[in-house]
Amino acid sequence: MAFQPILRSNAAGRRVYAYEALVRGPAGEGAGGVLGTVTEANRYAFDQACRVRAIEMAAALGLTETEARLSINFMPNAVYEPRACIRATLAAAERTALPRDRLIFEFTENEAMQDPAHLLRILACYREIGFRTAIDDFGAGHSGLTLLADFQPDAVKLDMALVRGVDQDSRRRSIIRHMVSLCADLGCDVVAEGIETEAEFRVLQDLGIMLFQGYLIGRPGFETLPRLALAA
């Protein structure tokens, strides 16, 4: 696993809001090669192993000694029955003393559209247990507003293609400004992903975003919880 920080920046200052767990090979190889080995036959075992590994490693690295959350990507099509498939995750959280409300489970728009009814059952179960949920790569597809209405996530992570060069594109700024307002009405946090420049960061702050992720904020750290790269 690698862990990438998500920054919360507001009037109270800057701090790590969460770390996203990113799958890596044994020597730090990128996610592409690892995910390429996932098949229908091993998908469930892989999804379960990633969840437990992320929780145990993050705790061993000191996450539970901070206020930061842990964000985990999960595969909805690897979950055959929500309560049965969550047992190992709950056991890992209990072993490491990681409170349930500090776990965030991310899913993508494309995954949501494969079997919406199934994902709704999963998310209802996760909310009842006390987990938080997030839509990753929001804006990359064509059903974003329907997802907000149907799935009611705790957070949306704006796709990096939407925020790239936002400081030089008035149309992107307008879209994001309205997205921030809409999500505020829905009680949903907004995370800007893929932040690479100070100019992007400043403009997004001015648009009302307080949660940020990207190389400017901090690069993924292999088997470590990296510090924020952005100076206070």
Rank of each mutant, 00 (worst) to 15 (best):
M1C: 01
F3S: 00
L7G: 06
N10L: 00
A12G: 08
G13K: 08
R14E: 09
R15W: 11
A18Y: 06
Y19S: 11
E20D: 07
A27M: 12
G28A: 07
G30D: 12
G30W: 01
G32Q: 12
G32N: 14
G32D: 14
G33M: 01
V34I: 15
L35P: 02
G36Q: 08
G36Y: 06
T37I: 01
T39I: 01
A41G: 01
A41T: 11
N42S: 11
N42V: 02
F46Q: 08
C50T: 06
R53W: 03
A54G: 04
A54R: 03
I55Y: 08
M57Q: 15
A59C: 15
A59H: 08
A60N: 14
T64Q: 15
T64A: 11
E65Q: 15
E67D: 15
A68M: 10
R69G: 13
I72K: 05
F74C: 03
P76S: 10
E81V: 08
R83G: 11
A84I: 07
I86F: 07
R87F: 02
T89E: 08
L90K: 13
A91Y: 13
A92F: 09
A93G: 09
R95C: 03
R95I: 01
T96D: 08
A97V: 05
P99Y: 15
P99N: 05
D101R: 09
R102S: 05
L103I: 12
I104E: 10
F105D: 00
E109M: 00
N110C: 12
M113N: 00
M113R: 00
Q114P: 00
I122E: 00
L123C: 09
A124T: 13
C125H: 13
R127H: 14
E128M: 06
E128D: 13
E128G: 03
G130I: 09
F131A: 10
F131H: 04
T133A: 06
I135L: 13
D136Y: 07
D137Y: 12
F138S: 10
G141A: 15
H142G: 09
L145T: 02
T146N: 14
L147H: 11
L148D: 03
L148S: 12
A149D: 12
A149E: 15
D150E: 15
D150T: 09
Q152I: 02
P153V: 04
D154S: 08
A155G: 04
V156D: 13
D159T: 06
D159R: 04
G165P: 05
G165R: 08
D167S: 09
Q168I: 03
S170N: 03
S170P: 03
S170Y: 13
R171S: 13
S174M: 12
I175S: 12
I176Y: 13
L182Y: 14
C183Y: 01
C183M: 09
C183D: 11
L186I: 09
G187I: 08
C188S: 02
D189K: 13
A192D: 03
E193Q: 07
E193P: 10
E196K: 09
E196Y: 05
T197P: 02
E198R: 12
E198A: 10
F201S: 05
L204E: 11
L204S: 11
L204Q: 14
D206C: 02
D206Q: 15
I209D: 09
L211T: 06
F212V: 00
G214D: 10
Y215L: 11
Y215E: 11
I217P: 05
I217T: 10
I217K: 10
P220N: 02
P220D: 05
G221C: 08
F222K: 02
T224I: 03
A229G: 05
A229Q: 06
L230P: 03
L230V: 14
